[in-house]
């Protein structure tokens, strides 16, 4: 059987279509103590990002993103190869690495993810491309390590898991870099 071509061979990637979300649908997301930061589509960041405001990534980020009290959104043009730790994470774009959120992770249909994610609540839209692991155990080591000293949100009682994916990411018009970031950035 090996080395034989099968006329019926098929690629089951029914999720190959990439839909570009309408930016107009973005609404306010999780609470933020002070505005949002945007990494634009032409920006490359290589390093560690830390801070205390919500972040929208439309560019390319490699390294580490730590916004433990805020949301991180990987926008439709975002390409992230990093370990991301945040309160809430929304993924519309491309991600290769680790995502850890103390509250929830929302994977939209345009997302392309390879890696591992951990959060007490995870929702995923049909059409999203995903290869990896989804750890939804509030007591998993990944959450304990990322949020040492803080408890991740407890999982709601059975039947209470919200599988809807209509939550909108935090987004803002501000484009100032995170004041707490340690990074190197270059523009195309």
């Amino acid at each position: 059987m090996f080395n034989k071509k099968d006329q019926t061979e098929a690629n089951g990637s029914s999720a190959a279509r990439v839909d570009r979300p309408d930016p107009a649908r973005r609404e306010s997301g999780p609470s933020s103590s002070g505005g949002s930061a945007v990494i634009g589509a032409s920006i490359h960041v290589d390093g560690t990002l830390r801070g205390e405001e919500d972040l929208l990534i439309e560019g390319k980020v490699k390294g580490t993103v730590e916004l433990r009290k805020n949301s991180v959104t990987i926008g439709p043009t975002g390409e992230v190869t990093a370990d991301v730790v945040a309160h809430t994470i929304f993924v519309d774009g491309s991600m290769d690495g680790t995502l850890v959120a103390s509250e929830r992770i929302v994977i939209r249909k345009s997302a392309r993810i390879k890696g591992s994610i951990a959060a007490p609540r995870v929702s995923l839209e049909d059409g999203a491309q995903f290869n990896g692991s989804i750890d939804m155990d509030p007591e998993t080591d990944a959450l304990k390590k990322a949020f040492a000293g803080k408890n991740a949100s407890p999982k709601p009682a059975r039947q209470g898991n919200d599988a809807r994916s209509g939550d909108a990411p935090a987004s803002g018009s501000a484009n100032k870099p995170d004041s707490g970031a340690k990074s190197t950035a270059r523009q195309n």
Partner: peptide
């Protein structure tokens, strides 16, 4: 492949869900 219903069902448990997406590899 990753599907909404699978994540929703096993999200009700303390679950690690591994998704291999092997149909992409048929060819």
């Amino acid at each position: 492949a990753a599907r909404r219903g699978t994540v929703a069902l096993f999200g009700e448990f303390r679950c690690r869900l591994e998704i291999l997406a092997l149909p992409d590899l048929l060819a």
